[in-house]
């Protein structure tokens, strides 16, 4: 039995509307593209679905930089304001504007909410703040550092993101590396970002281009995958930075033996 294309696309549209990842229609918020066909084509929405919440896990610096890069991509069109929600802990490393700018995020457009309180109470406050921010259509992207998120809370966040058409990122630093051990939450995608040895440089003792092992652990309506991505940073025009696929790493020499002969001093 032949099914005409119109029927098929209508059915597809209904399914994705139910799933909250609307493919087409002017109502649906624009997807946040990586600007990299290899990743965008793998994602069912041609990029990270707008109006939904995505989960990023991983080490402090890399996950922050990756989230900043995505938030910066969400900001590309008409530079809407961004909101970053972080716990207020004096000992913890804090966001640093000049460093975020290197990943394409405009620190001037950033409003940072520092959540007082620790543990469960602090997480509840942060969830409230994120929900409020997601419900505000004027916000370009909301990034929140919340570790304790359960299924119910994440569903609320997803509904808020759909209502506001806002792009949400959940930055979960201290969840276990084992993805099976992490309880499922209602995010549209889950990513794990690990720092990878940087790209080639000459002399080889210097740092090269920033590289991450980017693992797509879960995606609604798609398959998990992994890439080795680079961040191409232009120090003159910080908005010109972008993702790129890293070339397959060839043989990399270890630290040149000559350096080992330098006089050593044990300090401090």
């Amino acid at each position: 039995m032949a099914i005409d294309n119109a029927t098929l696309s209508r059915l597809r549209g209904r399914i994705s509307a139910l799933e909250g990842t609307a493919l087409d229609g002017s109502e649906a918020p624009r997807a946040v593209s990586f600007g990299l066909a290899a990743v965008d084509d793998h994602l069912p929405t041609g990029g990270l679905a707008g109006g939904s919440v995505h989960e990023i896990t991983g080490g402090s610096g890399s996950a922050t930089a990756f989230a900043a890069a995505l938030a910066g991509r969400a900001q590309r069109l008409h530079r809407p304001p961004l909101v970053w929600i972080a716990p207020r802990i004096d000992q913890r490393e804090s966001l640093y504007g000049p460093g975020l700018a290197a990943f394409g995020l405009d620190p001037v457009a950033l409003t940072v909410v520092r959540i007082p309180g620790h543990g469960r109470k602090g997480a509840a406050q942060a969830l409230w703040a994120m929900e409020e921010a997601l419900r505000t259509p004027a916000i370009g992207a909301v990034c929140a550092e919340i570790d304790a998120v359960d299924l119910t809370a994440s569903r609320r966040l997803q509904l808020a993101a759909e209502a506001g058409g806002t792009f949400g990122l959940l930055l979960r630093g201290s969840v276990s590396n084992d993805s099976a051990a992490v309880p499922p939450i209602a995010s549209v995608t889950r990513w794990r970002i690990t720092a990878a040895p940087s790209g080639p440089a000459w002399p080889t003792s210097l740092l090269g281009i920033t590289r991450w092992q980017v693992e797509l652990l879960r995606v609604r309506g798609g398959q998990p995958y992994h890439w080795l991505l680079e961040w191409r940073h232009d120090p003159i025009d910080e908005t010109a930075g972008g993702f790129a696929l890293a070339a397959a790493s060839g043989d990399r020499p270890a630290m040149p033996a000559a350096e080992q002969t330098l006089p050593l001093a044990r300090t401090g």
């Binding site: 402090s60 610096g61 922050t64 930089a65 900043a68 530079r79 490393e93 804090s94 966001l95 640093y96 000049p98 460093g99 975020l100 700018a101 290197a102 990943f103 405009d106 620190p107 001037v108 120090p235 003159i236 910080e238 908005t239």
Partner: peptide, 14 residues
């Protein structure tokens, strides 16, 4: 966007 203030790389977390 603001003009880049420093040419030397700065970390996103301090």
């Amino acid at each position: 966007p603001p003009p880049p203030t420093v040419m030397c790389p700065r970390p996103p977390r301090l």
